[in-house]
Computed example of a mutant assay.
Amino acid sequence: MKAVEVFGTIDEKGQLLLDRALEDFPPSRVRVIVLFAEVAEEVEVDPDDTPIAEVKASLRRALKEAKAGQRIPLSEMWEGIDVE
């Protein structure tokens, strides 16, 4: 059996909604173990973490644009970015 950790939310109907899709797995039945945070315990979610699906989509889009010749010259990439 293989384990994957993913966060999710239980909605008002008691349905489990995952924060991201479980990719690279064939359709099948799964065993689910739900861990609830203690009342005093906060689940830490890093606001800077971009969901994996969004990162993959961005990389696919960038590769497609690069193959189509839609590139920004390196000399223009830092224009408008303030560095402190």
Rank of each mutant, 00 (worst) to 15 (best):
L59I: 07
V30M: 13
K56H: 12
G69H: 03
R60E: 09
P26V: 02
L22A: 03
L17G: 01
L17F: 11
D46P: 00
I10N: 00
I52Y: 13
R31T: 12
E65T: 00
D19A: 07
V39E: 15
R29C: 03
V30N: 03
D48K: 14
R20E: 15
V34P: 02
F25W: 15
V45F: 07
E41G: 03
E44H: 12
A62I: 08
A53T: 08
D49C: 11
V34G: 02
P47R: 04
R60D: 10
T50M: 14
P27G: 13
A57F: 06
D48I: 05
I52M: 10
F36A: 05
A37P: 15
I33C: 07
D48H: 10
D11V: 03
F36P: 01
A53N: 07
E65H: 11
G69M: 01
R71A: 09
A68R: 04
G14M: 04
A62F: 03
S58T: 09
L22V: 15
P47E: 15
I52G: 04
K13L: 06
R29G: 06
V39P: 00
E41C: 00
I72M: 11
K64W: 09
K64Y: 12
A68N: 06
K56E: 15
D49R: 15
L16I: 13
E54Y: 02
S58Y: 10
I33M: 13
V45K: 01
K13S: 13
E38V: 00
L17M: 11
L16A: 07
F36H: 08
K67L: 13
V34T: 05
R29W: 11
E12I: 04
K67G: 05
R60C: 02
D48A: 13
R31Y: 12
Q15S: 11
P26T: 07
P26H: 11
R60M: 06
P73Y: 03
A57Y: 09
V30P: 05
V55L: 09
K56I: 14
E54I: 05
P47W: 12
E44N: 08
L18W: 07
L17V: 15
P27R: 10
A37F: 00
D24Y: 12
D11F: 03
S28D: 14
K64H: 07
S58F: 12
G14P: 04
I33P: 00
F25I: 11
F25T: 07
V39I: 08
R20V: 12
T9G: 01
P73T: 01
T50N: 02
L22S: 04
R71K: 10
L17I: 14
D11K: 10
I52L: 14
D24W: 11
S28Q: 15
D19T: 05
T9W: 08
I72V: 13
L16H: 07
E65K: 14
Q15V: 13
A53I: 12
R60K: 12
I52F: 13
A57N: 08
A68Y: 01
G14T: 05
E54W: 01
R61Q: 06
T9I: 10
R61H: 04
I72G: 05
P27N: 15
F25C: 12
L22Y: 06
A40E: 15
E12H: 12
P47Y: 10
V30Y: 14
E42W: 07
S58H: 09
V32H: 02
A62G: 02
E12W: 11
G14V: 05
A68C: 02
D48R: 13
E41P: 00
D46C: 03
T50S: 06
D11P: 04
R61W: 01
P26N: 09
V34R: 00
T9S: 05
A57Q: 09
Q70H: 14
